[in-house]
Design a protein around this nucleic acid. Structure first.
Lengths: 153, 153
DNA sequence: ATTCATTAGTCAGCAAGCTTAGCATATTGT
DNA sequence: ACAATATGCTAAGCTTGCTGACTAATGAAT
């Protein structure tokens, strides 16, 4: 085989993805955009998961369970993400004196710095699409639906 | 702090996600929908990645590299997905007699059966959204853009 | 007061992305 | 013909989703 065996998307058709399940388009698009974020965040010493956590922590001191629920991940996943952030010096965990089961999480000075340096990356990372508002609306619908089904909240 | 520190989404606003980066909405929505697929596919003995591969194989005999490129994953990832499908008896790998470096992949009879039983799940799994066509268009744009950037094709 | 259920967090192990580093086979250049 | 390069696939190890099982602390019920 001497010529490239990959059928390049030809002008005029809508590509091989035209009849794929929407869920698959969603997964793939999500992964690809996530990769772009990962690449951009690496320069700031942050992972994608850590960046989300740092955002959600904000200037307050939420518990790990609250963070997990807002990020729509399981508590165990959030725990591990926070492990790494803590190890890297971006956050601090301390027991809640009012309820010793809870760990309240807050940004360190380093964490503030990292967040400030990374928070503007959206424009640089996310490509332009034709219907940005419809896209966001649909995604929020999907998240609400999926969250309801998974955690019957 | 005695009252709950979580700002519950108040009636009248658009929820806490209204000003999140679109990329994050995309990742989360993708994960949630993927979970729904995983749950539905489990009854048919298939994983999400395996289902995609089985779809792309179709009735032909593509090489692993071709499959990876169509699925937009790295060849190594596809290799492992095919390992599992092969172990489970859904596909068969054989060396291409024309080029002994290539492994051509085809469905077994079991694979055909599994595919036939699972291929209609889209309707059952994917929730209704307000702008399905705009969503699909935007996702395809994102995939094309991301693919171009990652594999400069 | 003691027991029992619930809640917050962690640990271990699986799945499927990724990267880096091989090995085997083909192809190309001298 | 043979060395160098390119290509297809696999292996190993990281990350971050997941689930299931565990501990510690709290709160409720007897």
């Amino acid at each position: 085989m001497v010529q490239p065996s990959l059928p390049e998307p030809e002008e005029g058709d809508h590509g091989p993805m035209a009849n794929w399940p929407t869920g698959r388009l969603l997964s793939i698009a999500g992964r690809l955009v996530e990769q772009a974020w990962i690449a951009a965040l690496a320069d700031h010493g942050l992972s994608h998961a850590g960046f989300i956590a740092l955002h959600l922590i904000g200037t307050g001191s939420p518990s790990q369970t609250e963070l997990a629920s807002q990020a729509k991940v399981e508590a165990q996943t959030m725990s591990r993400t926070l492990d790494k952030l803590e190890r890297d010096g971006f956050i601090r965990r301390s027991r809640d004196p009012k309820d010793a089961r809870r760990h309240v999480v807050s940004r360190t000075v380093e964490g503030e710095k990292a967040w400030d340096s990374a928070k503007h990356l959206e424009a640089e990372v996310f490509p332009t699409v034709s219907h940005p508002q419809e896209l966001r609306d649909a995604l929020i619908e999907l998240i609400n639906d999926g969250t309801r089904k998974r955690w019957q909240s």
